[in-house]
Nucleic acid binder design. Structure first.
Lengths: 330, 330
DNA sequence: AAAAGCGGGTTAATCGTTTAGCTCCATATG
DNA sequence: CATATGGAGCTAAACGATTAACCCGCTTTT
């Protein structure tokens, strides 16, 4: 390049990075770029600027629509800004989670977006010594002050449960996520709070702690059906457990909503696939991804306004035909 | 590092890259690594070796289990080998497809794994001027000699259709993918070939060309139900169209398999979710991902044996209860 | 005993950028 | 007219590794 134009590399660097260059030179460099098909070598640039123009995305699993839809939109925003997205799936393995986090840092990513599982603040602190931006999605890590983008899980669960209550349901089976996951705690809180607000007693037997996998949705639904006074409604609180619950209900030939009313989570496709169409809590996956992506871009540009910001995005309760109104029935 | 040990950087480089170093020095360097918490700067290394230790993965959509499961296993293999996976979702947009491909190359990836849509050989040739390894998954690009890893679509479709035929079905609705996609062509070939082998006539009205989206599965299923002599069985040939088909059948309250027999594709979760459980053609997603990943690793190591290799992986026909045996019925 | 071989080290160039600091020249200012 | 001012370009040093070329001294070979 320098040779072709007869200019020094410094001038060319100026041209590329928008410095002052004479029009005539500007033209000749532009021409050279075309002819030599010049592309900046981002690696060399990265060495100098200590920026790799990539961000790492660390997620628990890549085979769940919820996660991948978010990732897809993160990737979209980042790519528009010239940033690459290095993805790491830790397969819900706490060991891998830390390993892959280190791996990402080894690749000198400029920022990290994490959907954490078992990661703890201390550990994070140790692994991430340079202060690159970290954004959590869906869940946060206690004691680690950082931006978080998540759905408003508490209200999501509150209003779904409230919907059941106002339709006359009093015994509502609740298939919850793991006790140690923040999202799950929030969803449980919503369930509990609405019971309090409506002065309803809580029957612990109706609360099942699953592990967010199909299997547990399946097993706990069966358990719920088997207790002495089975619930008149079941609320499954994530994508996979919704699938499992439906499998169990189908297997037992339980009629929805005649015998049991049902509300699921996330699984918007599923909603219309089974008969009758299911009422579903829908998380704003696209919005979560885009918000996380653009927040990351802001942080990468050095804008620390509002740090650490906790962004809760509204969920939607999609009403279909899987809930029976028994409020009139005595 | 060099300062700490009193050795030259060259010696340290040898240590890192496995050259001959005196035991005593080896120890002291090892100690220095610990104390200084030294990590090789892959960017600097990349500048010299012209390797970024990252592989680009270009896919049409990140919100389909089929794709993401594959990506997840690709990522797994690559990560084990120290390679990062930069992902790009082109959202089934041919424009974006080329743009993101260039983007990936701009990030100096060492190799590229593509699930192509509209990309053509010529275009590819132009974009990829340096001869980095390219591996196609699921579909190939005509005229571009490169490794391909895919499911054996022809046989998959052949045996699913054959299964229907041997159960007495003669009019089999076939919801095919787009005419210009190789995978879809292969699946169609299987359908046609088995008809030939069994000396059955083909009714063009039973073949619907969808676009691999839910919507088209839904619409074409309805169309199939509406023709004068509707098919006794329907075979949907991808994940999304299987969902759509089931939605349509549900909406029309068509009983499976009493009124219509059904075989779906890929959607293994769905299989048990609906009543009755669906028979499904299952692609070996994990195997596709792992094969593509390790093939990429081999190519990156310079092993060109068998190039270009076209790897077809066996699919499985998962038999459940959605097909009625009418071979005895006259 | 001299030559050859080799293990283990060093030096210095290099990869392709960015950037601080300098020079040069033209224009504006007092 | 002498002096600031500042635009545009250049030089050269970095960034942190790899690597070719070379050197030293010990062992082995003849």
């Amino acid at each position: 390049m320098a040779k072709y134009t007869g200019l020094s590399v410094a001038t060319i660097s100026k041209y590329i990075n928008g410095g002052n260059v004479l029009d005539s030179n500007r033209d000749s460099i532009g021409e050279a770029v075309k002819i030599l098909d010049y592309k900046v070598n981002e690696i060399a640039r990265g060495l100098k600027t200590r920026k790799s123009k990539t961000v790492g995305v660390l997620i628990p699993k890549l085979d769940s629509i919820f996660t991948t839809t978010i990732v897809s939109h993160i990737e979209g925003v980042l790519q528009e800004n010239g940033y690459g997205t290095i993805i790491c799936d830790y397969r819900r393995d706490p060991g891998l989670e830390a390993v892959k986090l280190e791996f990402l840092l080894g690749k000198s990513v400029d920022g990290i977006i994490i959907m954490p599982l078992a990661l703890e603040a201390e550990q994070l602190q140790k692994i991430i010594k340079n202060d690159i931006p970290v954004i959590f999605i869906d869940r946060s890590v206690k004691g680690f002050g950082s931006d978080v983008v998540m759905a408003d899980n508490l209200n999501a669960s509150y209003s779904a449960t409230e919907y059941l209550i106002t339709r006359g349901h009093r015994r509502i089976g609740f298939i919850c996520g793991p006790r140690d996951i923040h999202t799950a705690q929030e969803r449980l809180k919503g369930y509990l709070r609405v019971h309090g607000d409506y002065r309803l007693k809580i029957d612990e037997a109706l609360i099942k702690y699953g592990d967010y996998e199909i299997e547990s949705g399946y097993n706990y639904t069966k358990e719920l059906l088997d207790i002495l006074k089975p619930p008149a409604a079941i609320f499954a609180t994530n994508y996979e457990m919704t699938i499992g619950a439906i499998m169990a209900l189908n297997e037992r030939s339980v009629k929805i909503p005649d015998e049991v009313s049902f509300i699921g989570f996330d699984n918007i496709h599923l909603a219309d696939l089974v008969k009758p169409p299911l009422s579903i809590v829908v998380q704003p996956m696209r919005q979560i991804g885009e918000t996380a992506g653009s927040l990351m871009m802001r942080r990468l540009k050095g804008d620390r306004t509002g740090f650490p910001s906790i962004i809760r995005l509204k969920t939607e309760l999609l009403i279909k035909d899987s809930v029976r109104d028994i409020s009139g029935v005595v």
